[in-house]
Amino acid sequence: MNKIFILTIFIFSCLSISAQHRIITAGSSSSEIVCALGYCEKIVATDRTSLYPEALQSLPSIGYRSNISAEGIISQNPDLVIFEKEYVKAEVISHLQATGIKTIVVTQERNLEGIQERIEIIASALNKTSEGEAMISEIKKSLKLIQKKVDSTPSKPKVLCVYARGQGNMQVGGKNSAFNLLDISGAVNAVPEIEGYKPLNTESLIKANPDYILFFDSGLKSLGGKAKVLEIPGVMQTTAGKKAQIISMNGILLSNWGPRVAEAAKELFYLTHPEVVE
């Protein structure tokens, strides 16, 4: 009797493991969480923003936001699909649910509550609840250390965040943009009155007078590097320009609020507080 019981448990546990061996993710934060929980090899396809860990870049791409289609996802034969909210069209989600493929939707909020919720939901979908809890407490612990540093550092530099795709395509990020990380890195947004993104304007740039100008690495590269940024009209009239304090970070790390959020906050803190020694 006992043997049969053990055998049944064994068969069921095998089933539950093999039942989730083809995962599709949409949203780089979710992809990173799945990988951090040890399921990276189980991801069979992902969206175009999921660039980290690098192994994901060689997978089939299901596309980007509105060009993601239900049939494309189904054709990869997944048994678990993870979307970030509002990332794909409602029709795609309802089509997938009709086929019986397990589809979960996590929040897209770029803040601490958001990442906690994402980790909890994804961990429970993967039967890794305790690992998820451990990851959350690890993140909280690291963030507390950074908070201590922030509290003991008097300077709160003003940072102007620029999302650039080449000359003539520069957007300034304000509240609720990809640059929310500033809030936990001891810096303040130079243009808090802007909601989302607005085109860069020379006079407002001078008026905002940022101490630092922050780019994505790819954005800074698209402009031709630091020297070219200093040539942008108005930049030399700001503190950032005069002190040549043009900084950049990996775009995904800076903006996705994934498992590496504490690492990202630490990097941003040291970038904007060079006076603090590690």
């Binding site: 089939p60 791409s61 299901i62 596309g63 060009n67 993601i68 289609s69 049939e71 494309g72 054709s75």
Partner: peptide
């Protein structure tokens, strides 16, 4: 549109 870049889609 449906097949050129499958599994993604072109507008």
């Amino acid at each position: 549109a449906r097949t050129l870049v499958a599994p993604a889609e072109l507008p």
